[in-house]
């Protein structure tokens, strides 16, 4: 399928990735004409794009272009920020998540998130994982133990912490903390996992562990990941969106976007000749 004129939203909407040969997956998240303003200044302008189910979609772009902002629109975390105005629609599984009746808490239970900066709670490792379960009202200790172990194993952290589950999470290294945050996010089995530069502060070994993890998790979750690192996007993602200054420049399968970009701007960025 040829790349289409991406500045035309209707063209993008029609060009759903589901029809693509190498992805049989249906679109799960449909963003349409999304603009976001912090006070008077626009951080996102008229973004339209569809994110397929159970694949990894990457957002790339220069710093400050609005990647995090776009990601946070998907679990409505920008709601809590003062003076934010949002236009356009975001539909997940056909449900407009910005319509007035939507229960934001329920949404966030099904759309997990891992942040750029590891932010474990100042509690024990165990309690960090258990937090999401506890706020859902889970009391059963046995069940909880099982889920904590499974989540830590999925995040490839179990062997490192199994002897100190009740020690403070703040005693872990940066990479371990970030994996703990991933374990915490997947413990509640969300359907979508948003990851904001999960490996930006980590060394290569920790980074590759997390990349392996993402590839493993993709079986179960729909993953949207923000990254600064072009190689990383190429390694792990199926689709890639390139943003610049709040606008979506190009969206395509990762292989096409990197090998055969439609826009000069994209080519400059992915080849490192940007700005």
């Amino acid at each position: 399928m040829a790349t289409t004129d991406l500045t035309n939203p209707s063209a993008v909407a029609r060009r759903s990735p589901s029809g693509d040969a190498d992805s049989p997956n249906a679109p799960l998240i449909e963003i349409e004409g999304l603009s976001l303003y912090y006070g008077p200044s626009a951080a996102l302008r008229n973004i339209t794009l569809s994110i397929p189910e159970r694949l990894v979609t990457a957002f790339i772009g220069p710093s400050g272009c609005g990647k995090s902002t776009l990601l946070r629109c998907l679990n409505r975390l920008n709601d809590a920020v003062e003076n934010v105005r949002i236009e356009g629609t975001v539909r997940i599984g056909g449900c407009d998540i910005y319509s007035p009746g939507v229960d934001v808490t329920e949404l966030r239970k099904r759309v997990g998130m891992v942040f750029q900066k590891a932010n474990p709670f100042p509690k024990s490792i165990y309690e960090n994982i258990a937090y999401g379960l506890r706020v859902r009202g889970l009391r059963d200790r046995k069940l909880m133990d099982g889920i904590v172990e499974r989540s830590l194993r999925s995040a490839a952290l179990w062997d490192e912490v199994k002897d100190r589950l009740h020690a403070s999470a703040l005693g872990l290294s940066g990479g371990q903390q970030q994996r703990l945050c991933i374990a915490r996010a997947i413990a509640t089995r969300p359907e979508i996992l948003l990851m904001d530069e999960p490996a930006s502060a980590l060394d290569p070994v920790a980074t590759s562990k997390i990349e392996d993890l993402i590839l493993a998790l993709k079986q179960e979750f729909t993953i949207v990941i923000v990254t600064h690192n072009m190689q990383q996007a190429a390694r792990i993602s199926d689709y890639t969106a390139f943003l610049n200054q709040g606008e979506l420049i190009e969206f395509n399968t990762t292989s096409r976007l990197f090998t055969n970009p439609a826009k000069q701007e994209t080519e400059d960025y992915v080849t490192g000749r940007f700005g």
């Binding site: 009746g101 939507v102 949404l107 499974r150 392996d212």
Partner: peptide, 27 residues
């Protein structure tokens, strides 16, 4: 450990449809 990373721990349970998110203002 390697097993647990590559194979999902258990088959995902059936999820409720996304339209369940709309539950009215005072949930």
């Amino acid at each position: 450990d390697a097993d647990s990373v590559t194979t999902p721990p258990s088959p995902p349970p059936a999820k409720p449809p996304w339209h369940d998110l709309a539950r009215g203002r005072v949930a």
